[in-house]
Design a protein around this nucleic acid. Sequence first.
DNA 1: TCTGGGGTCCTAGGACCC
DNA 2: TCTGGGGTCCTAGGACCC
Length: 409
Amino acid sequence: MDLDAFFASVEQLDHPEWRGKPVIVGGSAERRGVVSTASYEARRYGVHSAMPSFQAKRLCPQAIWTHGHHARYRELSDQVMAILGDETPLVEQVSIDEAFFDVTPGRFSRESPIDICRRIQDRVSRLGITCSIGLGVNKTVAKIASERQKPRGLTVVLPGTEGAFLAPLPVRALSGIGAASESRLSEMGIRTLGQLAAQDPERMRRAFGVHGPRMVLRAAGREESVVRASDEPEEVKSVSNERTFAHDLTTREELEAAIGHVSALAGSRLRKKGLAGTQVTLKLKFDIYHTHTAQRQLDEPTDDEHVFGAVARELLDGLWVEGTGVRLVGVGVSGFDGARPRQMDLFAGDDATPDGAGATPSSHARDLRALSVATDDIRRRFGSDALSYGRDLRFRDDTSHTLPMDGRD
DNA sequence: TCTGGGGTCCTAGGACCC
DNA sequence: TCTGGGGTCCTAGGACCC
């Protein structure tokens, strides 16, 4: 099941005056943004997801533009997932607007899968949004089927007809095949899933690694997939924040401020999730095609931006030469395995170990940790942009964007 | 005026260990 | 006499997804 133009549909649900009009959810053209979702009315002008906003604006200047309301999307998504869970016990949510569910005849119910899907669509429609559903013997077939007829489509691929259904479709229809694989396959003369299905798996393994043989099997509709119940959320492997600036940053001062800013966002999220990691990554994007990263391993896990932000600043020297323009700055923390968030020992003496490498944090480090926790609370109550370090305001970007929106902002 | 942000997974080379 | 093989960890980059 896939929700149709989800973010844009929610905006039209919440703003009746926007219904029937082109609506675009995404970043603004002036701030180097891209389209997140376009309503069907906007798609008629050629606007689609991931399109640069300046281009979308050119194609459809009259579109209504919004940055979106993620909490509201989450709320509706939860209601949709609750409907699925009510209809069948085995539901695997894969994103905010997509889920697999198992309605194998006779497994959980004697009812026809088609009837169950029709009822799901009715119930979702009553929330004020619509969904499309694909029915098939495995996830690959079902997902591709769900995209064939939109909006509010129900596409059924009967067992035994998978090969014929998939064969004429472009290889790009298979999730996992993106622009790069598509062009490499094209060089090999492979353009359709039918052609891909006919390949020698070993040849494909040499060309595409472990994905190769799997691709052939999936293209033939013969993959065996399992719908995994998503009761316990997948274990998080990394937490990062990044920001693209309306104008490139060029000075060390600006870059260090930007690192401080994204580090604080990441630190806040780490503490909220109860995670502390041992690996710090700094990411710089110089232009659309050139991104570089540098990582460093820490001696002990941290969730404090004062610790990993300082490391990120040190990593700057390996990536950046004075004067080069930087369009994006990102900081991430990973390496959570086995690492519990370090409990601060509030009673340890300051002189137990020298500052820096020791197991006992210095009083300064503890003060900074306390500061982080206090700012978390303020951001939680007043929003993530409510508070910043003066030091971090030095980049020329205007961080306090004005959203042309309603009360929820 | 000229392509986001949050992730996951895979590959590959080098250091290092036994 | 003159340099193996298997494994792990670290680092960097890239493809891909929504």
